[in-house]
Write a protein that binds this DNA or RNA. Structure first.
Lengths: 338, 338
DNA sequence: CTGTTAGCGCCTTCAT
DNA sequence: ATGAAGGCGCTAACAG
């Protein structure tokens, strides 16, 4: 069997506690004793048993990121980021699917809190739209950090994107290119970002003295099929559209596909843009114009924030805003002079 | 504090062991006692402490998937799959980055084995090209399942794709479309699949009495930039190419991008195909022809296999082969009659 | 600076 | 069919 702290103490001729001090880099051990213990540790191939430590400290050293399984593309970048973090930190990171209001998801959550004693959670939209989730975490006093929450609360730390500003920037950019009939694909209604971006869109129109035309707003899911379908519906109803502002990059891919299928050149006849700047967006021809606001960065920040809270260092600012930045690529161009 | 098994025993008026039996669905508890204990458990809101169980059983109930961080697109699908599994299983799944022969990766691995006592590993290529890794796992007797290993060993269970067959199918398909000058982008040399697909490519040429032309084989990394660069080099050297068989889908995206950039229509002038069938491949216009052999399925199978091994049920077959299937889409077409 | 003692919450073993 | 005792490996609290 593997060596224990007791074995090391025996061989090193000191107490268990001293060995413990050495392992945990605690002070109050004379330098030569410390090095001696370290030698013994190495010679025995001793490694601390994390489970025992977890038990006695009543901590799991595991944090959990709750993700809505609908977002596929995002996931790849999130995974890389998470892997970076686990590479460096003491905490293990568990990624769990969470469907808001879903019975099984809720049961799993309870299990995670009650049995696994997960130390903290990172919540991504639209998971926060399930009030059961937040209630549960608050009741059990499990630390959490929210990403783009629908209702930011001062008590709960969060990372949010400047969606209103992003919606404004993008719309203004399209207006500058000469577009007047700009469609907006509104994403899921249980995410605040959908509404905020719409606000920005409206504000930009107003700033340029353009009318807001409700029929140019199409409800759709923020994914490929959503964008595809919305685009077709929209063009049926509204032949004059010269630009489509999709709810996110994935939806924009759907829009582009639909347009190509209909033989409408992008961006020569219709410009398309998204929101998020997935890695894929610079790989599809002719490159997708979008707002840079990557989920992975936000997850990384949230995770680091959570870990530092768990380590007893509350953040300076509870609510962090990530600025949005326009990334122009080939999928948008000047409106065609007809 | 949370209730313990002791509290439940006290309230229920029985011994701890009886409570333990109830929790774990063990036999030898009278039916009415069992239901009574269950009632008490519910009323106290008792939940077993996983850390304690882990300590006493000397198991972590955690398995680890080692992933090379280079594959970004795959990751998204892997994550979804993994989330599905954790939703159902008792095991937590940790996803860890692993760079073959990298010092930090190796240290992390040792930590995972020695301190975290990870119960089992799923190894993906090219991680298995680091012999330290396999040695480590075998020495410590940690169960593992390999995916597409370079050197399959009868002793180590593995899931592999039929890469040779896939390479053959795709090449033959292109030949059937009339292509004669078919370029092959060879991926990483520390993955067996690169070589096997090349074999399939050669075999198909031979079966159709076509010469194998070494200058049509280009070494490249299996990613977007690799495909992009290889495509440009290739066309400089070899103007007559009418089809490009990329090492995987990501590389194919790079090829398509390069061709579009050069104003070469796909598939009218040059056909392009990939290997893997990522979700993205049906979303880019005009759809990527590819071989269906998704990493996520293989990971899912490997993970289930590992878990069943850990539960004491060795698999019937140690080496599992996943058949490859051709998925024709819009990126390939008949060769142009010039 | 170093050591002793007493659990953490659960399961295993062996009685009853 | 049920229970009592002991210990997994570690650290916290308190002595020295």
């Amino acid at each position: 069997m593997a060596a224990t702290i007791k074995d090391v103490a025996l061989v090193a001729g000191c107490s268990m506690k001293t060995v413990s001090r050495v392992i945990n880099n605690e002070p109050y051990v004379k330098e030569d004793l410390r090095t001696h213990v370290q030698t013994v540790i190495r010679s025995l191939g001793y490694a601390p048993n994390i489970s025992a430590r977890r038990l006695v400290q009543n901590k799991s050293f595991i944090i959990c990121i709750l993700l809505y399984p609908g977002f596929n593309q995002e996931a790849s970048q999130i995974l890389s980021t998470v892997m970076d973090i686990t590479h460096d930190e003491d905490y293990d990171i568990l990624i769990q699917p969470y469907f808001p209001s879903n019975k099984r998801s809720r049961n799993k959550l309870v299990e995670l809190i009650a049995e696994h004693r997960i130390d903290g959670f990172v919540i991504t939209p639209p998971c926060d739209s399930d009030s059961f989730l937040i209630d549960m975490l608050v009741t059990y006093k499990v630390p959490l950090v929210q990403i783009n929450p629908f209702d930011p609360t001062p008590q709960i730390p969060s990372i949010s994107g400047e969606d209103r500003a992003g919606g404004f920037q993008m719309t203004e950019y399209l207006i500058t290119l000469g577009h007047r009939e700009i469609a907006y694909l509104m994403g899921s209604r249980n995410m605040r970002s959908s509404f905020d971006r719409l606000e920005g869109y409206k504000a930009a129109l107003q700033a340029h003295h353009l009318p807001f035309e409700p029929s140019l707003v199409e409800n759709s899911e923020n994914n490929f099929d959503g964008g595809y379908t919305a685009c077709k519906l929209l063009l049926q109803r509204n032949a004059g559209v010269t630009a489509v502002f999709a709810g996110n990059d994935e939806a924009a891919y759907g829009v582009i596909f639909a347009l190509q299928e209909m033989g409408i050149p992008v961006p020569r006849h219709i410009s398309v843009c998204g929101y998020e700047d997935l890695a894929q967006s610079k790989k599809i021809w002719p490159g997708l114009t979008t707002i840079h606001q990557p989920a992975d960065d936000m997850i990384a920040q949230a995770t680091h924030m959570l870990i530092s809270i768990l380590k007893g260092n509350p953040p300076q600012k509870q609510q962090i805003l990530i600025p949005s930045r326009l990334v122009p690529r080939g999928s948008t161009g000047p409106v065609r002079l007809s």
